[in-house]
Every structure is written in C-alpha cells, then in structure tokens.
Amino acid sequence: MLEALDTEIGRLLGALSPEERDNTVVIFIGDNGSPNQVTHGFYGDHSAKGTIYEGGTHVPLVVAGPGVETGRTGAFVETVDLFTTIAGMTGAKAPAGDGRDFAPALTGGDTGRDYIYVEHFGDAKDAKPSDVFGWALRDANYKLVQEDGTAPELYDLSMDPRELVDLLADGISEDEAAIVTRLEMRSAAARGN
C-alpha cells in the first residue's frame, strides 16, 4: 500500500510543471486509522480503524508546498480545519464554523486549537464488531472516551499513547474527577450543548 501511494503521489507531482509545483500546496491526510488486521493487538483491546480511540483518530497529515517549513509539529489539527485552511490559502474567507486555519503550524507556529473532538455515530444494524460509537475529547495530555452505554474511560496520552490503561477502571480520584469534568465541559461546548 505504501509503495503504491508513494508511486502515485510521485506520478501526480511529476506531472506538474516547475511553475505549477512552485504554486501548489499538496495536502495528504489519513482517513480513519489503519486497518484492524494491521494493528491487531497493538492497541490492546481497542480496534483501530473507524473507532474513537487513537488508532482510529490519530492519523497522518502531510502538507508540502511553497512556504511550508520542513519538519514535524505537535499542533492539533482536525479534519474540519481543512476547509478553513484551504480557503485561507486561496484568499477566500471561510464561513464561521468549527474549523480553524492551521496555516500558522506550517511555518512553525500553533493552530490555537487546544483539544481534539471526535464522534462516531451510526446505525447499530450496520455495525461491525470493531465499531465504537460515542465521542472522545483529548487535550495535550488526557483523553476522555465515552462509548454509548458504558462508563467513561480516561487515558493519560502523555504516558500511555496506545490507551492501554483506563485511569477510571479502579475508581475515580479527586484529581481524575476534575480532569473528567474539564473534558466533559469542553466536549459539551464542542457539541454545542
């Protein structure tokens, strides 16, 4: 798959004239994580593709073109930010919404986004065993996962990026309760509640 992707992206870029390449920004983003057959066991009991866990939401985003600095960033970007960012790159004004312009992150700056919110809802009759319906919200360190019909789960992604240890599994401490409340409030705001 990677070889095919590399070949086809190479063909696309090779088809552009030098002038077009100098005036083109290429954006590549993964969709819903790696196939579960590939990640089998890596995320413990959690599946990857199509879930609200990191394996289904923490996907690659690669941007290349004029004015884009080479390197990596830890800035938060959501797919809803693509429209706003692309509109800004073209000089258009995006309508107000949930998206933010992540262009500053392309030159070493920050997006101003301090959380990532995801949700996965669907028709249970079409569900696969790996489907996880509900929502999740993460900040720089913690992620709160709320699957439909289950107790919330809390992960410290700075120490446990694969979400193997639910901090709430053995009860909830005062500090954990404060983190959950903060993330629940942020999630309610993201959903417009």
Rank of each mutant, 00 (worst) to 15 (best):
L2S: 03
L2N: 08
E3D: 13
E3P: 00
A4K: 09
D6V: 10
D6L: 11
T7G: 08
I9L: 15
I9F: 11
G10K: 02
L13C: 15
T24L: 13
T24E: 03
V25H: 11
V26W: 11
V26P: 04
I27T: 00
I29K: 03
I29F: 14
D31P: 00
D31M: 06
G33T: 00
P35E: 08
N36G: 05
N36S: 05
H40T: 09
G44F: 03
D45Q: 09
S47F: 14
A48T: 00
G50H: 05
T51N: 06
G55K: 02
G55W: 05
G56D: 09
L61E: 04
L61P: 00
L61H: 09
V62S: 10
V63F: 12
P66H: 08
P66E: 10
G67H: 05
V68R: 07
V68Q: 11
T70M: 05
T70N: 01
R72W: 08
T73H: 09
F76Y: 09
V77I: 13
T79D: 03
D81C: 07
L82T: 05
F83N: 04
F83V: 06
M89P: 01
T90C: 15
P95N: 03
A96E: 15
G99P: 04
R100K: 10
D101M: 06
F102W: 08
L106D: 00
D110E: 13
D110V: 12
D110P: 00
T111D: 08
T111R: 04
D114Y: 00
D114E: 01
Y115A: 05
I116V: 15
Y117P: 00
Y117E: 00
V118P: 04
V118W: 05
H120A: 08
H120V: 01
F121A: 06
K125G: 01
S130K: 06
S130F: 15
D131T: 02
D131H: 04
W135Y: 15
L137H: 02
A140T: 07
N141S: 14
K143R: 08
L144F: 12
E147C: 01
G149H: 07
G149Y: 11
A151T: 08
A151Q: 11
P152A: 12
P152F: 10
E153I: 02
M159G: 10
M159F: 08
M159S: 13
P161W: 09
R162S: 08
R162M: 10
R162Q: 12
E163D: 03
D166E: 10
D166Y: 13
L167C: 01
L168D: 06
A169E: 15
I172T: 07
S173G: 13
D175P: 01
D175R: 12
D175I: 10
E176V: 02
E176D: 15
A178Y: 02
I179A: 01
V180S: 02
R182V: 07
E184R: 14
M185N: 15
S187C: 12
A190W: 12
R191Q: 12
G192H: 15
